[in-house]
């Protein structure tokens, strides 16, 4: 298992974007993905690209980290772009080979969709590269808080999420150890017939489940011993708060939304 991939992509640097409140970055990324669907002209796509490029430059994260985000989606992007290119309805035929015809409208549509994909991926990568997983978790909790009104157990979810994040590296190490131990006894993983693969996974899962349940019990005892009670009036170790920079980013997003709507 690739540890880096599992634990998160955060790159500890110090920049304007790194220092923003996680809520600002979460809302910004979501807002951007919403805005981009209104863009339908060259000017609006150029503006959006400029905005993302500016963000990437300010973050001082090397470009290769952003490009890495595209790789798992490359096939989907190319497939969707090709579909648009070949089948989007259009009048002006550029060239035609057999039943395949490429129209001018199709070409433009495909280019737009391709850019849209890149920008969305860069934006979400920007969020996860510049924000610690725990900070994103705090941000999500804070943003979900209004849902408590409709009986969503936001506090419980936040607690479960932070415990789970805490134990991801621990359990992963354990899974690796058990896997090595089973392989030393001659087991193989991810090879052979499907039925054999299923059988091979059982000796990995049983110890993992047993350990997880034992750990949960110890953890609950530790929580009780330290006086944890339903999370009422619980304070936080890390407080998040909006600052002046968050206001600037908010204004930038409002400006961007206005400009994109005006250009489209």
């Amino acid at each position: 298992m690739n540890n880096k991939l599992v634990i998160g992509q955060y790159l500890p640097l110090d920049s304007f974007i790194h220092r923003l409140d996680p809520r600002t970055k979460l809302l910004g990324a979501f807002a951007f993905v919403g805005i981009i669907f209104f863009a339908d002209s060259w000017q609006s796509y150029a503006l959006l690209s400029l905005f993302v490029l500016l963000g990437m430059m300010i973050s001082s994260v090397p470009i290769r980290y952003f490009l890495r985000g595209i790789r798992p989606l490359l096939f989907l992007i190319l497939f969707t772009t090709c579909l648009q290119l070949l089948f989007a309805p259009g009048q002006t035929i550029l060239f035609k080979i057999g039943f395949i015809k490429v129209t001018e409208e199709g070409l433009i549509q495909a280019a737009f969709i391709f850019i849209r994909f890149l920008l969305i991926i860069f934006m979400s990568t920007l969020l996860t590269l510049t924000t610690m997983p725990l900070a994103i978790a705090d941000g999500l909790e804070s943003l979900m808080r209004p849902l408590a009104k409709i009986k969503v157990p936001v506090h419980e979810i936040a607690l479960i999420l932070s415990i789970a994040l805490r134990f991801v590296p621990t359990l992963m190490e354990e899974a690796d150890k058990i896997k090595d131990a089973q392989m030393a006894r001659g087991a193989t993983f991810g090879e052979g017939k499907l039925k054999d693969q299923m059988k091979a996974i059982v000796p990995l899962l049983i110890p993992l489940f047993i350990n997880a349940i034992d750990r949960a019990e110890e953890l609950a005892t530790a929580m009780t011993a330290r006086g944890y009670k339903d999370g009422q009036g619980r304070t936080k170790y890390r407080e998040i708060s909006y600052g002046r920079n968050d206001l600037y980013v908010l204004l930038a997003f409002i400006g961007l939304t206005g400009a994109v709507l005006w250009l489209s």
């Binding site: 599992v6 479960i160 789970a164 359990l171 609950a220």
Partner: peptide, 22 residues
Amino acid sequence: DRVLAEIALAAALAYILSFIKL
């Protein structure tokens, strides 16, 4: 608390196992 802890560990396990594929 114990149920909460179990849910958390199950979620963590589920996340880790998403990287093991048959």
